[in-house]
Every structure is written in C-alpha cells, then in structure tokens.
C-alpha cells in the first residue's frame, strides 16, 4: 500500500529533482551536525603566502628552466615535475616591478604551480574535464543543428 504510493511518486520523473535535492539537503544538515572535522597538516601542493612579494596572493614561484621541489601525489610518475613553473611575460614583468598589485589579478599570469598540477602531475583530471566539455558541446551542437 505505502510502497505502491512511494513507487508511484518516484516513477514520475518530475518528482526526481525534489527527492534528490531533499536528500542532498539532509546530507548537508548531517554534515553540520557531525562537524568538527580534523584538518590534515601534511597536505599536497601546500600554499605559501609571502606578503612582501609584489605578486602577493598568486606568487606561484619557481625560476624558469630549473626544477622546483613539489610535494605531489605520485612522484614516481613524473620525473620532470617542477620544471613547469611560473614566469612572466615582458609586460607583466614590467608591471610587477613597478606596482605591488599585479598579484591581485589572476589573469596577469596564469600558471606556475597550477600548470604543473593541471597538465603534468594531475594531467588525467584535465584530460577528463575537457572530455566532459567536449561531450556536452557535441550534444548541444547536435541538438542545435537537428532540432531548432
């Protein structure tokens, strides 16, 4: 009786979203109740902030063409890790020497340790991620050309 009613409710796909969102909300409430979580001190790719640097929050460090020391997940897989570190284009180099605020804009110099993570040591993440974008784009373009 009650099972029949539940299954009838679930079989209507309009009700799927409320059910799932409700479950997620419950999970998050449970998360708040269980909260004080320990924070591990030995993190991968730790972030250091050097307030004196002119690239302040985004100083991603490392002179070009030398190998930096990085604490990463699978060191045995990436012998060249640490080479792909940051450097500045001539224009941003000039900006960074004249002002103290270059580091406040993330577009000023993408990369550094982020490139190292995204393309080298955790490259598979980044391969799967454009694959998702690619599939989504294929769906959208197929629907666009076929339907509308």
């Amino acid at each position: 009786m009650i099972i029949g009613r539940i299954s009838r409710f679930l079989s209507d796909f309009d009700n799927l979203m409320p059910v799932f969102a409700g479950a997620c909300a419950l999970l998050f409430v449970l998360g708040i109740l269980l909260l004080p979580l320990p924070y591990s001190e030995s993190q991968l790719y730790p972030k250091r902030i050097d307030r004196a640097s002119s690239l302040d929050p985004y100083d991603r460090g490392g002179p070009p063409f030398t190998q930096a020391n990085i604490s990463m997940q699978y060191p045995e897989n990436s012998p060249t890790a640490g080479y792909v570190t940051t450097y500045l284009t001539p224009f941003s180099w000039w900006l960074s020497t004249t002002t103290l605020h270059l580091g406040t804009t993330i577009v000023a110099h993408p990369g550094g340790i982020l490139d190292e993570i995204l393309y080298n040591t955790r490259g598979l993440d980044t391969v799967v991620e454009p694959t998702i974008l690619f599939i989504a784009f294929a769906i959208a373009s197929y629907l666009f050309r076929k339907g509308i």
Binding site: L44, K47, L114, I117, R122, D125, T126, E129, I132, L133
Partner: peptide, 24 residues
C-alpha cells in the same frame, strides 16, 4: 592549498559544460 585552485577548475568547467547541454 594550490591543489584546491586546480580542483576548482574542473568543477567549474563540468558545471558550465552540463549547463550548455541542458539549456539546449
């Protein structure tokens, strides 16, 4: 950590990609 910045990017891109398909 720096890893967080690198993990935010896939999360963001997955969201945008699925939104693109869903809106179509």
């Amino acid at each position: 950590t720096d890893l967080a910045e690198a993990l935010v990017l896939p999360g963001l891109v997955v969201g945008i990609a699925e939104l693109l398909a869903l809106s179509h």
